[in-house]
Amino acid sequence: MVQIALNGLRVEVDEGMTILEAARFYGIAIPTLCYLEGLSPYGACRLCLVEIGSPGQSKLVTSCTYRVEEGLIVRTDSDWVIKRRKMLIELYLATCPSSKVIQDLASKYHVTSVRFTPWYEDCILCGLCVRMCAEQMQGKAIGFAHRGSNRKVTTPFDKESEVCRLCGGCMYVCPACQSRCQGPQEEQPVCNACLNLQQPCLDYFDDKMCFMDPCVACELDTNRELKVKRRL
């Protein structure tokens, strides 16, 4: 066990854990798009950035790849982290406004406007499908090709793969295309439709903690605005 300071709390975590695992273990939510338990950490979506080190000498690192060490000081929602994360979410939203996962993230972080031209892409290149195919399905049917702005997920030579078993694992893990959001329109990449959601769990739990990563509806309930403000 090693001792770390997690948002000011002294906690003990297993050696070899990543910051993300440790934070989630203690119920602290860190958003991710390219991380999935059971797949190797990839560090590509950059959303899981956290601040480490003592103030003045701190830096941002990806919590999904950074392993805890004795005495590590971690802040998962400092001003610095939130500022950069919001910009990243705005970029995601402009890239891929049709993804419900991303729209939800935007709502959570109060990203209410997009200052870039929406692209309406289907893929954010998080690589979940590629790792799913290779690591869980032992398929290696899909992968990346090209570089930089031309990078994409594809099959060899853009043709039907000979080794694909059509298991559908790739589609299952996709955060961008799996659940489409019908909200955003051509000229308005932020849908804000989720703002009208009723908390589905409210009837059961009233205002007690539900011990889950707070869902969008809960986060944005007007009665809890204070709580949300404190978080952000």
Binding site: K140, I142, A145, H146, R147, P156, S161, V163
Partner: peptide, 12 residues
């Protein structure tokens, strides 16, 4: 060697 790895390198 998986074909996709070869293809990735060839396009990279």
């Amino acid at each position: 060697i998986p074909l996709i790895e070869i293809y990735h390198a060839a396009t990279f």
